[in-house]
């Protein structure tokens, strides 16, 4: 191991860098306290190219260090990239880092088999389509990459997101970033947005933005993508409001208004509560509300 001045390193050359993001608060604090323990691997000749240690050099630059410990190697670029990838295998790589591995291998013209072998090590399916998607992820802009990591998006959701134009992605990220989401709600929302795009050719985001929470957003999108179902749901809700049922009585309808029957539920602790509930239901029936509910899905 030796020490070299940072000025002799080409810090802007990131062709072997797979780490993302490079900023690492814990590492920074550690280096600040006890310095760089693990030497960087640098590719000769000078100005040296970093093979491993991009986060460490980032921290060193931030801390104003002038020299860093390193090991010099003189290997081919392909070997350098493989060393960089394998050096990181010991930790759990995020999807952007996995994408970087594959994109850089494809860029350096590794054979398909070599790429697939690394994909297997990264727990990715050995498939051309997956490799293509990873390449798209690696080529995404910073906003998209940050969003993918922040929301910990699945490959399926990333794939769907990638189908939108840059401008659409920007809007979607802007809408979803502040909301508390789950993987499945993001999938639902992306699917509805995609459906609007396919049907209308474009998405009018002015009709979507401004939802307070994820449920509000879903409701807005549902009205746009499933207008009939939404109107039936609204109709049912309105009738139920008119029924003014007490909490121990509920009228349940098939969620898609497919089935002909409805369920009426009464929760009672004693016969008297049932008698009161039946009286209430009798009034609801006489007012024609039950008939209106049956009529909702008829035609």
């Amino acid at each position: 191991m030796q020490t070299t001045p940072i000025t002799r390193i080409n810090v802007s050359d990131k062709k072997f860098c797979i780490s993302y993001p490079l900023e690492d608060g814990i590492l920074l604090a550690s280096i600040k306290r006890i310095g760089i323990i693990q030497p960087l691997i640098l590719l000769a000749p000078p100005p040296y190219t970093i093979v491993t240690g991009f986060k460490r050099i980032e921290a060193a630059l931030h801390l104003g260090l002038t020299d860093i410990p390193c090991i010099m190697v003189n290997i081919t670029e392909k070997d350098a990239l493989l060393r960089s990838i394998h050096d990181n295998m010991g930790r759990a790589l995020n999807i952007i880092e996995k994408a970087n591995c594959i994109e850089k291998m494809l860029h350096m013209a590794f054979s398909t088999e070599e790429v697939y072998d690394v994909m297997t090590l990264l727990s990715l399916s050995r498939h051309e389509k997956i490799a293509g998607r990873l390449r798209d992820i690696a080529g995404s802009d910073e906003t998209m990459k940050c969003f993918i990591l922040k929301k910990d998006l699945s490959m399926q959701n990333i794939e769907t997101l990638l189908r939108f134009t840059s401008e659409e992605k920007e809007h979607i990220i802007e809408i979803l970033t502040p909301l508390h989401t789950t993987e499945s709600t993001i999938r639902e929302i992306l699917q509805m947005l995609h459906l609007i795009k396919v049907r209308k050719g474009a998405i009018d985001f002015s009709t979507i933005i401004g939802a307070d929470d994820i449920y509000g957003l879903k409701a807005r999108l549902k009205t746009l993508t499933y207008p009939i179902l939404s109107s039936l749901e609204k109709g049912l809700k309105d009738i139920k409001i008119k029924c003014a049922l007490p909490p121990n009585i509920d009228i349940k309808v098939d969620p898609f208004f497919e089935k002909e029957y409805i369920d009426i539920l009464i929760r009672a602790k004693n016969p008297d509560e049932i008698r009161v509930a039946l009286l209430k239901l009798n009034g609801v029936f006489d007012a024609g509300y039950i008939r209106s509910i049956f009529g909702l899905a008829k035609d």
Partner: peptide, 18 residues
């Protein structure tokens, strides 16, 4: 995709009953 689909009892997508 122009029409409005629901998941039927058989799990398949089909147009809403109405």
């Amino acid at each position: 995709l122009y029409g409005e689909f629901i998941r039927g009892e058989d799990g398949k997508y089909r147009y809403i009953k109405k």
